[in-house]
Structures are given as C-alpha cells and as structure tokens.
C-alpha cells in the first residue's frame, strides 16, 4: 500500500487527541500558527491539556481560544504576554493555568534533543537565575552551565507551506520557526499545509522537514484571517 499521510479533514487529522495530553503548537507571534488544527483540538473537547508553544495566544481565536476555553491546565512557553494576550493574562492572574517559563533557545533545543534521542544538554543560558533554580549545574571551561532535559509531546500541531504524501515539508519565511523541531519531538505530528504537491515535485535539496518526522498532513487553503 502506498504511503499516504494526507488526511481529508481537520477532524480526522487530530483524531486520537485525548484528555491529559501534551501538545506542541508551532508559531511565533501570529506567524506559522496552525489555527485550523488548534480549533480541531478545541472541537474535540479534550481537556486537562499541557500546551507547549512559544507564546500563549493573542486575540480571541487559535491558541488564545484554546487557552481561554479552560481546557489547558499547563502551558510551557518563553513569552506568554504580548499585546492582545488578555485571555491568557486573565487565567494566569486568577491562578487557573500553570506556567512553566523556559528561555526561548532552551525551549527549542529541548525539543531538538527529544527528537534526536539526546538525554539532556548543558547550556549557559539561565545560569545563576531563577529559571535555573533547582537544576543541576556544571562548570565547563570555567563557565557555569545548566542541565536541561529533553522536551517531548504526545502530539505536535504544525503549520507549513507545502507537503507531499510522504510528509516532506517546506515552510515559508519566518513561519518556519518551531515547526521543524516540534515535528521531531512528538509521537504524533500533524501538519496543516497551504499546498499539496505530487511526490517528486519538491526539490529534494530544499526539503526542510523530511517526511520521517510527519504522521498526518491536512490541506487548508481557506486563507481565513484569524483574530490572533
């Protein structure tokens, strides 16, 4: 049977999402956010979710809608507060959502480590600060480093530009951001793309995420302008 990761609908693409899952969501600011897939998770009714994303959502749709729904009990991110992050801000102020704040480079490197089978790494980032409190440290060449653990997820929701049926991905401009490392770090990687191309049509020299890291692809070309 030929490999075909292309899934006909968002509902089928996010099938299997369950209460208590840890879900990575790509994007930086409003660029590269898989809004249709996020709303698929919202529509599934899954709750007690842990979300891993750089930000915590702005406006009223997408990640902000998921956070605002009360179904996210914990968020792991680097920069939750932005102009328009009111839905997160209110839940945080009320103590209704747990926040694990991770330095941004540590966030993506922990994902890369999880995807690459690395058991942890020492980084100088955060040494001597509150964000390294309780973590093992080591002096390497006279400098203090902090031990950071890999970060994996049950599911990754990623937005990309182009895919084929093997799941090879191309991204567009700065919308690439966390997509490639999240795709590596999750048990089930689901990608929404603006364009599907035939196998062999993508320049193999230009593939950014090889299909081995991708499980499902759904074609979304509605060009909807989300309130995010």
């Amino acid at each position: 049977m030929p490999i075909d990761k292309i899934t006909p609908s968002v509902t089928e693409a996010v099938q299997g999402v369950k209460d208590g899952m840890t879900i990575m969501i790509s994007g930086f600011g409003f660029a590269g956010v898989p809004n249709d897939l996020i709303h698929g998770v919202l529509d599934s009714g899954a709750k007690d979710l842990t979300v891993i994303s750089n930000n915590a959502g702005t406006g009223t749709e997408g990640l902000a809608a998921l956070v605002g729904s009360g179904r996210v009990t914990r968020i792991i991110c680097s920069y939750p507060r932005s102009k328009g992050s009111d839905l997160f801000d209110a839940r945080y102020a009320a103590g209704e959502i747990e926040l694990e704040l991770v330095p941004q480079g540590t966030l993506s490197e922990r994902m890369r480590a999880a995807g690459a089978g690395i058991g942890g790494f020492f980084t100088p980032t955060g040494a001597g600060t509150e964000l390294a409190a309780g973590k093992e440290t080591r002096m390497i060449d006279g400098r203090e480093y902090v031990l950071e653990a890999p970060l994996r997820a049950d599911m990754a929701l990623v937005q990309a530009q182009e895919a084929d049926r093997w799941g090879n991905l191309l991204y567009r401009k700065a919308a690439r951001n966390f997509g490639p490392v999240m795709a590596m770090a999750a048990d089930l990687t689901v990608v929404q793309v603006k364009r599907i191309v035939a196998l062999g049509e993508m320049d193999p020299e230009a593939v950014v995420t090889p299909g081995i890291f991708v499980d499902r692809v759904v074609h979304i070309d509605n060009n909807r302008e989300w309130d995010i």
Binding site: A56, S78, Y79, P80, R81, S82, S85, F88, D89, Y92, A93, L99, L101, V102, P103, Q104, G105, T106, P124, T125, G126, A127, T129, E130, L131
Partner: peptide, 21 residues
C-alpha cells in the same frame, strides 16, 4: 524578564540566551 507582579505574566523570550551568547 519579570517584575514578579502576577497581573503582568513574566516573559523571558530569548533574553537569557542573548545575554550569555
């Protein structure tokens, strides 16, 4: 990155990486 005020959630972003790198 933080004032410790719960009304203003902290945001470290890339600041710690940049500061040491």
């Amino acid at each position: 990155w933080t004032t410790g005020d719960r009304r203003f959630p902290p945001g470290v972003g890339g600041a710690m990486d940049l500061a040491v790198g």
